[in-house]
Every structure is written in structure tokens, then in C-alpha cells.
Amino acid sequence: MPNPVKIALHGKVFNDEVKPHIKKVVDYLEASNTELIVSQLFAKKFKEAFPQYSNFDQFNKLQASDNVDYLISLGGDGTLLEAVNYVGELETPILGINTGRLGFLATTPKDKIDKALSDLLNKNYKIDSRALIHLETDSKVFGEKPFALNELAILKTDSSSMITVHTYVDGEYLNSYWADGLIVATPTGSTGYSLSCGGPIILPHSNNFVITPVSAHNLNVRPLIVSDQSVISFKIEGRSNKFLVSLDSKSHSVDSSIKMSVRKGDFKAKLITFDQLNYFDTLRQKLNWGLDLRN
């Protein structure tokens, strides 16, 4: 007999409103004779909510030896970004079930859970490979996870004045951004933090980065799109010697002596999609395009 499909589950703390939807996922997978493995971060809440399903293995980062076929993210986009970190270079396909709010990445709605899981187990899906951004530093700030699906952000600390981020593209001086910070976003991340700072929406497979200042002091400074074949490097100055560097949901405090550069990652995030929804559908729905409140 073939081995059962092995599925990793990752989620966050959830409320009573979300619990029935997570139970639907677990019940369906159990009835389908799949093997489940649950992230350590999710395991405690999972055990409390579903004591009948307490006999499962846990993981902190997926290993090749785990032989996981899919990872299912139960939550919003933030949960899916964490799932990308669990998968890393294994490129295990990720299905995002949206029990959160916006859902640009976790696009499967709660009322389509049964259909999505059926299509998943019957291999009736497509893989949407998304480029990652990779951070290189001289101090290994992010350890074994120096990558992000959405963006790198260099930010001032909460109480400090503006910072200056001297920015170079392939070694050539670009600009000194006097601002609260600077974002380098992937096309996937162009609908996240970068968008809220006035950056453009970039289609997922455009092979670009967008450099977006955060609250720039000079009003004529605008977001800039560059090729993702470029290496973008930085030098940081400010009255405070401490700055915040983040890769999606991961963040660390650094000082101005750090050497940093970003480039396109060596591997990708593989998101599971279905025929009934495409990227333009998601844009229209999440951004309410075409809706007129006067009607």
C-alpha cells in the first residue's frame, strides 16, 4: 500500500468563532487517512481545542526526513508568512486557509474548506512559485532563516528621530533616504507594508523588487522598481545607534556597524492555488475594486 499523505499544520491562537473551521479541516484530514504533524507553536492550543486528536508529532522546522507532502496554514497572511519560514529550502507546497481577515496569500475562504481539501488530496491544484528576498549580513542576524516572502524593512526604533539609509544598487550609489525607514519588497510583498507606504502593486512574477521609503522627509522621493537580479546594499546613520531590521514577521535590533545587502533568494515559496480563483480576482476582492458605495 502507498504511504498516507503527510500534512503539516500551522496556526496561531484562535477564538471560538474560528474553532469550528479548524475542526472541519482536522476532521476531514483524519477521515481521509492522512498523517498529521503540528507546529510546536500551534500544538498547545491545538491539544486544548481537540483532545481527541492529541496523538501527533510536532515540528519546529520541517526537515527532509519528515517527508511532509503539504503544509496547511490556518489563519491569515501573517500565519502563512510564518509557514514559509517552517518550510524554507524544502519548498514544501503551502495551502493557506483564511481564518483571518485580509487574505492576499491565504486565499482559501472558510466556506470552501471541503472543496479545497478534496482538490488538494486529489492533486487538483496548481503551484504558484513566489520569489523570496534573501538578506546577507556580516553578523548572521537571522541565523538559518535570513529570507522573507514579503519584504525587508529597515526602521528607526520607536522613540528615535529619523534615520538615513544610504542605498546602493549593484555597488552604484542610488540615494540617501532620510526617513522613518526603508522597505525592499518582493512582488508578493508589494500588497503589504510597501503598499501602505505608497508603493505600487507589482504582479507576482514580474522579477522585480520595489524600494519604498517609510515617511520620507523629502516629498519628492518616490518608490523605485529595480530588477530582482540586483544586489541592494545599505549603510545606516542616525542619532540613535540602534535600528530595527525585519524580514516579514522576524525582527532584530542592530547597530550602525552592520553590513547588509539583499538579493533574490535561491529557493521559492510554493503556494497552492485552485482554478476557481486567480490573482486578479484576489486584488478586486481584497481592495474592493469596482465597488461604488453610491450604488
Rank of each mutant, 00 (worst) to 15 (best):
L71T: 13
E35R: 11
I97C: 04
S39K: 03
L271H: 03
S160R: 06
L90V: 08
D138Q: 04
L291K: 14
G75D: 00
T34S: 14
T186Y: 08
L135W: 00
S206G: 12
N288F: 14
E30I: 11
I72N: 07
D170S: 07
I202N: 13
I202E: 11
T282N: 03
T99H: 10
T188R: 08
D66S: 02
N15Y: 03
N15D: 15
N122M: 11
S257L: 09
P204E: 11
R101W: 02
S176M: 09
G189K: 00
I97H: 08
N241L: 11
L36P: 04
N220E: 07
L105M: 15
K110Y: 03
E17Q: 14
Y168I: 09
K23G: 07
S32V: 00
V38Q: 13
D16F: 09
I127C: 12
V165Q: 06
S233P: 03
F209K: 06
G198T: 12
R130A: 12
D114L: 06
P2D: 08
D27N: 15
G290W: 02
L244N: 14
I97K: 06
A148R: 01
G75T: 09
Y177G: 12
L117W: 06
Y70G: 05
L71H: 01
S227D: 12
S257G: 04
K45A: 14
G88C: 06
L155K: 14
G290L: 11
